[in-house]
Simulated scan of single mutants.
Amino acid sequence: MRCALLASIAFGAASLACPAHAQELTGTLKKIHDDGVVVLGVREASIPFSYFDGQGTAGYSQTIALQIVDEIKKTLGLPQLKVHEITVTSSNRTPMLLNNQIDLECGSTTHTVERENVAAFSNSIFQYAVRMIARKSSGITDFPDLAGKTVVTTAGTSDERLLRRLNTEKHLNMRITAARDHPEAFAALKDDRAVAFVMDEPIVYGFKSTDAHPEDFVVTGTPLGYEVYACMFRKGDEPFRTLVNGVIAHGQTAGDAERLYNQWFTQPIPPHGINLNFPLSEQNRTLFAHPNDRALD
């Protein structure tokens, strides 16, 4: 009997009624079944979304990824399915997906219209503003203050594109440095090699909160724009999209997403018990009430 995934999602259930038969599988689900392993792309320091906490990968997005893995196990009837993690960066995550080195990436990846040309994106899991973090003593409060100064962001991100566009359109003559990853970018700010680090607001709040001297830094600036994070997977794979979106939509409309948010953004998190004190925004509350996979740019 063929499993009715679409029907089960329509009634608000996230799991399949029965395991899928191997001969029915296509795309990513077939690859995972045949390999006997699901490969997750994870981040090393995208706090609190996907990061190494001293024992393993943890975070808001990582929890969602593991919920998806649980659904894959049910769908395939493989409760002992192996899970393998590969660390990715903003620059290499898409090539690794396209080269079949990872099957799913849930971290801090922005869903943009341009990226839809090469990859597929799930229902959005988080909405945020693009801002910057600077030293409080610098006196920097908004983006015009960066004119003629060295500014850092992370290579391969939508933030880099927004920052370079701002630089051109407003003739700010900023010297923009694109770091390999988020920790390298924040290190440039701390070492005074840049006056500001432009990045997703929750990411810079994460660095501020976990720094030894959080009082030295301020998150500031009129948002360059609003964007959404989503899980990323290969294009043209409707069965996998249906499974992933079913898990995310069910969690959001059932209230699990808000509880998960509070766990990672308003309570102490591992490994040092830091609290980001980043309350749920009205934009995210609306997103959870109305799951969708639309890019905001």
Rank of each mutant, 00 (worst) to 15 (best):
L6C: 00
A7L: 13
I9P: 00
S15H: 11
C18A: 14
P19A: 03
H21C: 10
Q23V: 06
E24F: 13
L25W: 12
T28V: 07
I32S: 00
V38A: 08
G41W: 08
R43E: 13
P48D: 03
D53T: 02
G56W: 09
T57K: 03
I64Q: 08
D70E: 14
I72W: 13
G77A: 06
K82Q: 08
V83W: 07
H84R: 09
I86R: 11
I86A: 01
T89L: 15
S91T: 13
S91P: 01
S91E: 14
C106S: 04
V113M: 02
A119L: 13
F121Y: 12
S124D: 15
M132D: 12
S138I: 02
I140S: 08
D145A: 08
L146C: 05
T157I: 10
L163C: 09
R165P: 00
H171D: 12
R175C: 04
I176T: 04
L189A: 14
R193N: 09
M199A: 14
P202R: 08
Y205I: 02
G206W: 02
E215F: 06
V219R: 08
P223T: 06
Y226A: 01
E227S: 08
V228F: 08
M232Q: 15
R234C: 00
K235E: 13
V244I: 02
I248Q: 06
A249G: 15
G251F: 14
P270W: 09
P271Y: 11
H290S: 05
H290F: 02
A295F: 12
